[in-house]
Design a protein around this nucleic acid. Structure first.
Length: 159
DNA sequence: GCCAACGTTGGC
DNA sequence: GCCAACGTTGGC
């Protein structure tokens, strides 16, 4: 089996929070509406079933990593781009030539405690995180060392 | 709520 | 293909 890779997915909790995901009967969700080409490349070409990701709450008073999700379906066309009623509608995308892709994720576990951005920034092993250098990227890779370090920091049993 | 950073668009 | 203008993200 190929090695699992790790990611970080951002969401504004006012629109969709980790608890919202946990409340769902099957705890899965379409990760749709990403309209940034770099983030898109990861969704379309790199993220695989079985990969895991941090669920990160952005654009709030204390931005933080709050949970762990697992990828249950890899990149497929984001139908919200095709729906004129959707906020994420993009007339350039068509069923035959979709521009935007999405994945499906499942809640694995809430972290025993949230790890805030402010705290992450103080930790030398994490100085290389994409989160700091590419602040606006909403889907981003996390190195295995970073992943394990943050889990240990939060007191999580997951890997 | 402000505003810096930065991704995207479009004129040339 | 450059780059200015514009819009959005997201930390503070």
């Amino acid at each position: 089996m190929p090695m699992r890779r790790y990611w970080l997915l951002k969401s504004e909790p006012s629109s969709f929070s980790f608890d919202d995901l946990c409340k769902r009967p099957d705890r899965t969700e379409h990760w749709d509406g990403v309209r940034n080409f770099q983030a898109q490349k990861f969704l379309k070409e790199e993220i695989r079933v079985g990969d895991r990701a941090f669920f990160y709450h952005s654009n709030i008073k204390e931005p933080a990593v709050v949970g762990i999700v697992e990828v249950v379906r890899e990149g497929y066309p984001d139908w919200t781009a095709l729906d004129p009623q959707s906020d994420h509608f993009d007339p350039r995308s068509t069923p035959v030539h979709p521009i935007w892709y999405m994945i499906d994720v499942r809640a694995v576990a809430k972290l025993p405690r949230p790890v805030t951005l402010a705290e992450l920034k103080t930790l030398p092993p994490l100085t290389g995180m994409v989160l700091f250098s590419r602040g606006r990227l909403s889907v981003q890779p996390v190195r295995e060392e970073e992943w394990l370090f943050i889990l240990r920091l939060a007191g999580s049993e997951e890997i």
